[in-house]
Each structure stands twice: as structure tokens, then as C-alpha cells.
Design a protein around this nucleic acid. Sequence first.
DNA 1: TAACAAATGTGAGCACCGCTCTTGACACCT
DNA 2: AGGTGTCAAGAGCGGTGCTCACATTTGTTA
Lengths: 241, 241
Amino acid sequence: MDHPSSAAAKKSTPRERARARTVADIIRLGREHLALHGAAGLSLRAVARDLGVVSSAVYRYVESRDELLTLLLIDAYGELGDEVDAAVDALPEDDYRGRFLALGRAVRQWALREPARYALLFGSPVPGYQAPSERTTEPGTRVIYRMVGIFDAAYRAGALTAEAAPAVVVPPALAADLAAIRGELGVAVPEPELAKGVLAWTSVFGAVSFEVFGQYGPDTFAARDELFEHQLEVLCGIVGL
Amino acid sequence: MDHPSSAAAKKSTPRERARARTVADIIRLGREHLALHGAAGLSLRAVARDLGVVSSAVYRYVESRDELLTLLLIDAYGELGDEVDAAVDALPEDDYRGRFLALGRAVRQWALREPARYALLFGSPVPGYQAPSERTTEPGTRVIYRMVGIFDAAYRAGALTAEAAPAVVVPPALAADLAAIRGELGVAVPEPELAKGVLAWTSVFGAVSFEVFGQYGPDTFAARDELFEHQLEVLCGIVGL
DNA sequence: TAACAAATGTGAGCACCGCTCTTGACACCT
DNA sequence: AGGTGTCAAGAGCGGTGCTCACATTTGTTA
């Protein structure tokens, strides 16, 4: 029988380091191609050319085009999450309103700077590609979890002014979903406020998507910063921040 | 010199009818392919196969792949606009709230029924494709114009309860944009209400996009109808309907 | 140090794509 | 009947994802 053999889980990496470097290079080049030609135009052959290697060689490092898409997806989710975290952490813990505004601005800034990667995350699904949820859900939920965390902290501190829109009732079926979320995430925010938080979530990304995807048209809004800022303010009013 | 020649704008169509039929068939097949493989996967060759014709033949009817995309874009905008119009018109003119809700529901229903076409209209831009605005802006603005019309009618009738969120001020630069819109569309709604209308617009499509593009995840919300209904209710509160 | 085996790079090849061009057949209208 | 314009066909160009047999490099081990 073989000895413990090649010791796959040994300490480190003579070759593995080179391999990791190459994979990182492929991701970096993939990011550039994504920005230039979009997700559908991402070409392993082009990446191989830029890497200075024959096209079939990249298959040693990346299983398929879809695998590269997954890597780029995780990479983008990670960068967005990092920037959102940094923006939120820059404000005091009890500045709930400021933290919500900072989160929204960070999302928008990243999206405007990286439209192709934003489109990969929040735009039309790439046809024929199904993201492997076991690898993408965790990085993909960072932003919303962070937002919920802000709401929860504000609620626990009594800083959620619940008066904003008292008349709207939460139907039972929706309340059940929200209760499940409350349980799963361990948040104290009651259902009505949580429901408004969901609206804030979708509205922030709706506004960003409209701007990034060009739905406003080229000339309708010149004051886009002010428009988004205004939308964040109104959303603050809805959620009670 | 030639006579007035083939009289392109003559009365009717021995040949032109067959041609129009073929173009309509191509659009229909393109719609099916769009649903199956997405905008990026739309293939003229595949359409040609389904049409029972050699690939180069379709270029007699459609200038290019982009041209087919444009036709599908206009086709989809038209159908969405028709359905929204029908849903809104089914309610009395002075039921402003009901008409707004009907508009939102119609958008969502169409989007859920036609996710690929919705993605073509409101998802990530197709890389390398620029819609010819002289042909697409008119059909593409029908829904928002309709929504503005509802707000305007409600305002003129004194049915906009402006109290909803009085504290938010509209910054001057944004006010200028909104004033331009007011002038262009001839609406009476003041800037603060118009600004909230923009938020309602982006929020409706944000909510629909989240659902259609699978951003909620498969299990988070079972009561999606109620969720959307709730979001519409809250938006009603914001705009003052 | 020499040899071996794993990791990596190569190039040909398959089937597909959008698109262009030439060629030949057909239908219509005068 | 003849001219004119429309149309289908097919070859071809350069691109894509991906596979495979083969050659080369490289780390490790004897």
C-alpha cells in the first residue's frame, strides 16, 4: 500500500502557490473582459490569449466557462460586501440612519464603478447558467444581512419611529414568511417594520439598477446624485429611521 | 430616368403580405428562442432552422441579429404597454389608487409570464447592442407616462394627500430636472410629489426585477403575491394615493 | 544526482455562432 | 416575352466552448 503519499493536506505549497497565482490572474483577466464585453461575451479563449497561453491550457485551472463565471460572481460579491462593510463601519454603531444611507451609497458607488459586475450580480440571469448556491449564497447575502442588522440594532435601541406608515397591514401569509426570517436571523424587528425593510431593500437596488442599466434615458436626470440621495431619504422615512 | 417605379407606397401587397408574414414568423420564433436561451443566446441560425430555411435567407428579412433584437424589444414594449393600458382602463378614471395598483400588478404579471422578455427590457443591457432610441423610446416610455398620468389626474382632482412625507426636501438640482419633466409632459404635479413618483416607479420595477431575476432566493418568500401587494400599498402611502 | 510521475502546455479537431458574398432560380410587371 | 427585382442556397471567414492525444516542464523522491 502507498504511504500517506502525496499528503494532499500537508502544510503548504511549492507548486500550489503558482497555481493559485495563475487562477488569480485568470480571475483578474476575466474581470477585465467582463467589464469590456459583458457576461455573455466572456470568452475563455480571449482570457487565454491575454494570459499568453493556448486556449485549452486554461481548462487546467478552470473547469469551464461557467466555473469562471462562478469565480467572478463570488469575487464581485466579496468586493461589494467589503466596500459596504467599510462604509457602514466608518460610522458610529448608533448612527443607524447614517449607516443605512452609507450602505445605499456604497452599493450605488460600486455599481456605477463596476457596471458589468453589478449586472452579473443583479441583472438578468445568464441564460443556461445556474449559480451553485452552496458557494454563492453566503457572499451574496452579505449586503442584505448587513441592512437587516442596521434595522435590528435601531429597533432594539428604540430608534425606529414606527409611526411612519401605520395604516398598512401585513397579510398573514407574508407575516409567516417574515416570522421565519426573524427566527432564522435572530432579529427582533416586528413584521410590519421588517416588511418595510424588504421594500427598502428592493427599492435601493431598483433605483441603482435603473441608473446603471440606463432606464432613465440619457437626458431625463442630470442630478443623479441628488435623485438617489432623495430616494434614500424617502426610504428612511418609510422604514422609520 | 425611371418612372416613379415600384411605387413603394402604393396601395397594397401581393408580395409584401408574404414578406410581412415571414417577418412576423421570425419575430414569433425569436420570441420563443428568447424565452428558451435568453437575449445573448438568440441565434439567427436557429431561427432559420425553425423557419425551415437556410441561415442566410433570414438576412433578406432582418438586417442583422441586432435588428431582430430591436424588433423583439419593440414587440415586448408594445405588449407590456397594451396589458398595462388594459388593466388601468378597466377601472374608473377617478379611482386613482386602484389604477396605480392595477398598473403595478399588470407589470408584475407580465414580467412573471414573460421573464426573458422582461429581462430584455429591464435587465442588464445586451453587451454590444445599443437600442436605436428613435424607434424604442416611444414604446419604452408608455408605462411610466401612464403612471405619471395617474398621478397627475389624482393631483388635479385634489386626491393626492401630500401629508405622507412632508419633511423631505427636494434639492435644487433635482427640482430643475423635475421641472423640466413637468414642462415636457405638461403635468401639474409639484416637484416633491413628482420626486416620490419617481421612487414609486423605480421601486415597482425593483421589486418585480428581484422576483423575476431570483434575487429573493428560492425559499425566502412563499407569499410573493402578498409581498408585492404589500409593497404596492406602502408605495401608495408614499406618493399620497 | 538521476529518474520518475504529476502538473502543465500544445495543437488539432468538433460543432456551433454571426455575418458576407456569389450564384442561380423564381415571380412579378410592363 | 423580357427585364427587373426578390429570394434561397451554399461556401467561406473568423470567432466561440470544449475534448483529446501528445509533448514538455517541474517538484519530489530514491
